[in-house]
C-alpha cells in the first residue's frame, strides 16, 4: 500500500513536504491506519512522528486527516480507504512536527466553558439523585474524547480559534447545561451569548460528519441556542 505522509520537523525542514512510503500491510498484519503508521515508524523510518495511546478509539490521541477527512487512525480501517492514502495533521492547528499538532487553543476553549459540574447547594451525605431520564440527557455528550477531529474540521474555528469555542467545547458546555445536578445553567448560557463563543457556528455540520464517536455537536449547539432564547424572552 502506498502512503503519502505530511512531514515537517522545524529543526531540519524549511517547509513541510509529503513523503511516500510503500508498505506491505498484509505482511505486517496492519488492519487500521495506526497499525500501518506504526509499522512504517518501526521498520522504515523512526523519525516519523505521531501521537498514540489506547489504540482503541477512546483516548483521542491519534486524530489526523486521512484522505481529506479527520478521523482516528486507530479506528479507521485501511480497507475503507483509496490509495494512495494521504495522511496529514489535523487542519487549522499549528504543526509541531509531522502529524503532531499544537492543541493549546483547543484545550483553552475547552477550559473556557468551565468544564466541571457546579452545584451551589449543600453537599448531601449520599449521591445526588438523578432519574434515568435526566441521566439519559447526558448520553451523546459525556462520551467526547477531546480528539479535536470536530473542532479542527470547523471553518468557524479556523477563522477565530481564539474566540469561537468550537464544537467540542460547546458539546461539553451543553453536557453541563443539560446535567440536572448543575445549578449554574443561566451563568453558563450568559457566558456563551456573545457574538463569537457560540454564534459563530453556521451549522454546516462538518463536526457531525467527522466525529469518530458518532456524537452530534451541532444538535447540542442548537439546544443551547434554544435554551438561551427561552431564558431571554
Amino acid at each position: 500500500m502506498r502512503f503519502s505522509i505530511y512531514r515537517y520537523n522545524p529543526e531540519t525542514d524549511k517547509k513541510p513536504y509529503m513523503q511516500d512510503y510503500d508498505l506491505d500491510s498484509e505482511a505486517n498484519s496492519c488492519y487500521m491506519v495506526l497499525d500501518a503508521l506504526l509499522a512504517i515508524k518501526n521498520t522504515m523510518d523512526d523519525t516519523l512522528t505521531l501521537r498514540r495511546s489506547c489504540r482503541e478509539g477512546v483516548c483521542g490521541s491519534d486524530g489526523m486527516n486521512i484522505n481529506g477527512k479527520n478521523g482516528l487512525a486507530c479506528t479507521t480501517h485501511l480497507s475503507s480507504l483509496k490509495e494512495p492514502i494521504i495522511i496529514r495533521p489535523l487542519p487549522g492547528l499549528p504543526v509541531i512536527r509531522d502529524l503532531v499538532v499544537d492543541m493549546t487553543q483547543f484545550y483553552q476553549q475547552y477550559e473556557k466553558i468551565k468544564p466541571y459540574l457546579q452545584n451551589s447547594e449543600p453537599v448531601p451525605a449520599k449521591e445526588r439523585l438523578q432519574s434515568p431520564a435526566e441521566r439519559a440527557k447526558l448520553d451523546g455528550l459525556y462520551e467526547c474524547i477531546l480528539c479535536a477531529c470536530c473542532t479542527s474540521s470547523c471553518p468557524s474555528f479556523w477563522w477565530n480559534p481564539d474566540k469561537f469555542v468550537g464544537p467540542a467545547g460547546l458539546l461539553q458546555a451543553y453536557r453541563f447545561i443539560a446535567d440536572s445536578r448543575d445549578t449554574e445553567k443561566s451563568e453558563r448560557l450568559a457566558d456563551l451569548a456573545d457574538p463569537f463563543s457560540l454564534f459563530r457556528c453556521r451549522g454546516i455540520m462538518n463536526c457531525v460528519d467527522v466525529c469518530p464517536k458518532g456524537l452530534n455537536p451541532t444538535k447540542a449547539i442548537n439546544e443551547i441556542k434554544e435554551l438561551m432564547l427561552e431564558e431571554a424572552v
Binding site: Y116, L117, N119, L129, P132, E134, D179
Partner: peptide
C-alpha cells in the same frame, strides 16, 4: 469515595429511584 465522585459530576448510570 463513590459519593465524592458523584458530587464531582461523574455521570453514573441510574436506577429508577435516582440512585447510582
Amino acid at each position: 469515595t463513590i459519593y465524592e465522585l458523584e458530587h464531582m459530576g461523574l455521570p453514573f448510570s441510574r436506577l429508577d429511584n435516582g440512585k447510582i
